[in-house]
Nucleic acid binder design. Sequence first.
DNA 1: TTTCTAACA
DNA 2: TGTTAGAA
Length: 130
Amino acid sequence: MRISELERRTGVSQRLLRYYEEQGLLRPERLPSGYRVYAEDDVTTVEHIRNLLAAGLSTTTIADLLPCMGSAGGQLIADCPELLLDLQRERARLSAAIAELTTARSTLDQVISTAPPSVEHEAARLRGLS
DNA sequence: TTTCTAACA
DNA sequence: TGTTAGAA
């Protein structure tokens, strides 16, 4: 399929699909015209890319990981042990980020709880505007 | 009409 | 990332 169809089937813009290729995440074939030709599997691959990107992984890590993804529901293929190390590292990074955000939220909660009723009333009015 | 590259907002 | 110009 060509780029328009992949865009339609994945909801990912052509601009982004070309960017993914630039980052080594996709390897479409080329027609003599230069047009990209994507495989059926690329639809799932793009979905994987979206998930991993949302998980905060870098494009380079994803590039290493993709070859280890089964076409099923993101199952890891048996012979890719080195990747487990990277994934565990990413998991630790996420845990640290969550801890920081939780602390930040508590700080905000504390400040918010000091607001007098008059301020709360004004806040409610402003929310109604936006 | 569709896609490509490159570059700017 | 979106958008767009100019060329196949």
